[in-house]
Amino acid sequence: QVQPGHHNLRILPAGDGGLGFIHLSKFHGQLWKREPDSVWVLDRAIGFEQLRSTCNGDSLTLVGVAEESNAILVRAASRVFMVYLQSMEFKKVFNMRFFYHHYPFACCYAAGPGIVDGHGGDKVLLNIM
């Protein structure tokens, strides 16, 4: 059951590239996708039991989505973890004391002269990736 005021639902791409969403409840999740006939169907249910044994919290809070990595950011007690939905592997991102919204990104750089103008800009991009 979705409770108002809790951060436990996020829209994300479905596995087939369509529209989907994830819903978290304690240490369980459901990935839903929208079918071509506009019907929402359960794509798969996932458990976060391994993550539960790692942290002291009594539930997970969904705090971000990394679409390109097919991953979500979840908070458990005072820790934030990135969970890769395909493999269900996770890693601790950082400890925190206060709740913040998270907007993950893979790489960014300022566009402009010097990046690909023959002055070594391609080496800059290699070093930041």
Rank of each mutant, 00 (worst) to 15 (best):
L12Y: 07
D58W: 14
D122C: 09
V2M: 08
L12F: 11
E67M: 02
Y100D: 12
V93N: 05
Q86F: 02
I115F: 01
L19F: 04
Q3L: 07
V116D: 12
S25W: 03
I115V: 12
S53C: 08
A45N: 14
V2P: 02
H6L: 15
D16V: 07
L51A: 04
P13S: 07
I115E: 03
A45P: 00
M96T: 11
D43S: 13
V74N: 10
G114L: 04
G121E: 08
G15S: 13
P13Q: 07
P113D: 11
L42F: 01
C107H: 05
C107I: 03
V65F: 06
L126R: 12
H28L: 07
H119N: 14
V2I: 10
K91T: 08
L31P: 03
L125W: 02
V74T: 13
F105L: 05
E89W: 01
C108E: 13
P13H: 11
H119T: 15
G18C: 03
A77K: 09
Q50W: 00
G114V: 06
Y84A: 00
G47T: 11
F48H: 04
F99I: 15
V39G: 00
H23E: 14
E89Y: 01
Q1F: 06
H7I: 04
G20A: 00
L85C: 00
N127M: 05
K123T: 14
V39Q: 06
C107R: 14
I128N: 02
L125P: 02
V65R: 04
H6G: 01
F81W: 06
M129P: 01
G64Q: 12
G17R: 04
G112P: 09
H7F: 09
I115W: 02
V93R: 13
V39A: 07
Y103C: 03
V93A: 13
L60H: 07
R44H: 10
R44G: 04
Y109G: 05
D58V: 13
K91P: 01
V65L: 08
H23G: 07
L73C: 13
L19E: 09
V2A: 07
F94P: 03
Q3M: 04
A77C: 14
E89F: 04
S78A: 12
L62P: 05
H7R: 13
S38W: 01
P4C: 03
S25I: 01
G29F: 08
G57M: 06
G18T: 04
G17I: 04
Y100A: 15
Q1A: 11
H6F: 10
I72N: 14
P4F: 12
L85T: 01
G57D: 10
K92E: 15
Y109H: 14
V41N: 09
C108D: 06
D43I: 02
D58M: 12
V63R: 14
W40A: 01
I11D: 15
K91H: 14
V63C: 15
